[in-house]
């Protein structure tokens, strides 16, 4: 299987502070890969390097390469804006635009890119909301403000907004961290549904969630990739004692 991402000797950090210490990792396509590890291990920095968001911090640095379908995302001709279109990100706290309606929120990404067209807008909105598992809950209030939605619905609205621009990859940074168990279950169900069409890379502190949702898992520690394997293997019989210590709570 040709990997979706090929990460080669990726080093990244801020000024003198190194966070990623030469990561090499291949992420398979059309599936969920979870990145786990203790706070400060470089999980978020890694996924922010995957869609070139890391470099938006003026103090950030990076060396090494990230290939998406064999193309170097950091090639001098690669446009970071186009990269972020292909590789969208869902954040820990849902961030819909509060003064926009639900419909406008879904179309926001397209409007920013000048691709929203009235004739197809309704289809785009419905398709994206259906994919995000939100259509049946909001179909009658599409012109209401997003603030009428629950936290879990707002997170799915953000995912719908992302899906409307038809990305290839979804990066998720603790997508259910702020949600209650029912809303979390809906997000996990949504991830299960989306993984046949998208490559999903998810950062999570919740190992149980990583075990439930992901096909592959990478364990990071102090900026290093310690172990990458199928989630079935990694959560039952990890090869590295540091992974074993972390997943069984014998850490620190």
């Amino acid at each position: 299987m040709t990997p979706k991402f090929q990460i080669q000797n990726l080093m990244a950090g801020f000024r003198e502070r190194q966070i990623l210490a030469g990561i090499s990792l291949e992420i398979p396509p059309r599936g969920v890969t979870s990145i786990i590890g203790p706070s400060g291990c470089g999980k978020t920095t890694l996924i922010r390097c995957l869609n070139r968001m890391h470099e938006m911090d003026p103090e950030a640095y990076r060396t090494g390469t990230v290939l998406l379908d064999g193309q170097n995302l950091y090639h001098e001709d690669a446009d970071p804006v186009l990269v972020r279109r292909r590789i969208g990100m869902v954040f820990q706290t849902p961030n819909p635009f509060p003064n926009m309606s639900i419909r406008e929120n879904v179309l926001a990404g397209l409007r920013f890119r000048g691709r929203a067209r009235t004739a197809t807008n309704n289809n785009v909105v419905e398709d994206a909301l259906r994919q995000a598992g939100l259509w049946n809950e909001v179909r009658d209030v599409l012109d209401g403000r997003s603030k009428i939605l629950s936290e879990g619905q707002r997170q799915r609205l953000c995912i719908a907004r992302l899906l409307a621009v038809q990305p290839e990859v979804l990066l998720m940074d603790e997508p259910a961290a702020s949600l209650d168990p029912v809303a979390t279950a809906r997000i996990e169900d949504l991830i299960h549904n989306l993984k046949s069409d998208y490559t999903i890379v998810m950062v999570t502190h919740d190992m149980k969630q990583a075990a439930r949702v992901s096909d592959h898992t990478a364990f990071f520690l102090n900026g290093e990739l310690i172990e990458f394997d199928t989630s079935n293997r990694l959560f039952t019989s990890p090869r590295d004692p540091r992974t074993e210590a972390y997943i069984t709570g014998r850490f620190g």
Partner: peptide, 8 residues
Amino acid sequence: QPMGRDLR
């Protein structure tokens, strides 16, 4: 929900 050696 034990994992690793604890699950085993």
